[in-house]
Nucleic acid binder design. Structure first.
Lengths: 117, 117
DNA sequence: TTGACATTCAACTGTTTGATTGAATAAGAT
DNA sequence: ATCTTATTCAATCAAACAGTTGAATGTCAA
């Protein structure tokens, strides 16, 4: 079965394709609690709170993070499945590349054997 | 001009964050030869050859593909290290998420033990 | 109720991007 | 030499994007 890319995989990669959003994801993945407030995340970057809020919306639209509700806070946390989906797709690419190299090695080995006979 | 510019992870993700470019990468990874001509890739999409050529340039600038020279052809092939770099980063995120879940399980188990005592 | 805090919405702006068409370059085929 | 093929370069355009400031919403705390 050929492994088919998820329908909106490009949206996930696009969401990760910005230094601020990549840093947000990294921060969330390394935080002990697994979530962070918009305000705390905004403090990490030299841009306005509103700009960070927008970045979070982009990540959320791509399914990379989700936002809950805790009083007047909106805790942001990673959605593991989206990370896994992207990771799996890249792993598939790596495996296919390695498989081709392996086939190439095999062909070269056969050629070598042929020259000896 | 020898390529190899400062390639950052967000640039790689950004390059993958487009359906045409993602399909190009997928096509290259599944092709038997491991490379493809610009013309052949362009035939896969309902956009102009020049647009596809630009997409390839974006992928090349991000270090995701490289282009060789074979007569009047410019064969495009994947650069494994860039795929691996992105894959490794996502794997790290996945591992951190799993580690946190494991710690949470542990905490919950302790709480449960506490209620029994 | 008033005020502070956390966050979003709305409007605006400059930059980047994805696409187009037409012209240019380069190399194989006739 | 000329023609055809493969690909890129250049100019252009509309749409999307990342950022800003200012106003609005909702919630806690006095």
């Amino acid at each position: 079965m050929p492994i088919v890319a998820a329908r909106h995989l490009d949206t996930v990669f696009s969401a990760l394709g910005d230094p601020v959003r990549l840093a947000i994801v990294e921060n969330l993945s390394t935080s002990t609690s697994g979530h962070a407030m918009v305000n705390d995340l905004a403090a990490l970057f030299p841009i306005s709170l509103q700009a960070v809020s927008k970045h979070i919306k982009v990540l959320e639209a791509a399914g990379v993070v989700s936002q809950g509700r805790d009083g007047r806070h909106r805790p942001v946390s990673l959605v593991q499945s989206s990370i896994s989906t992207a990771s799996d797709w890249l792993d598939d690419r790596t495996r296919q590349l390695e498989a081709r190299y392996a086939r190439l090695d095999h062909v070269l080995a056969n050629i070598h054997e042929g020259t000896r006979s």
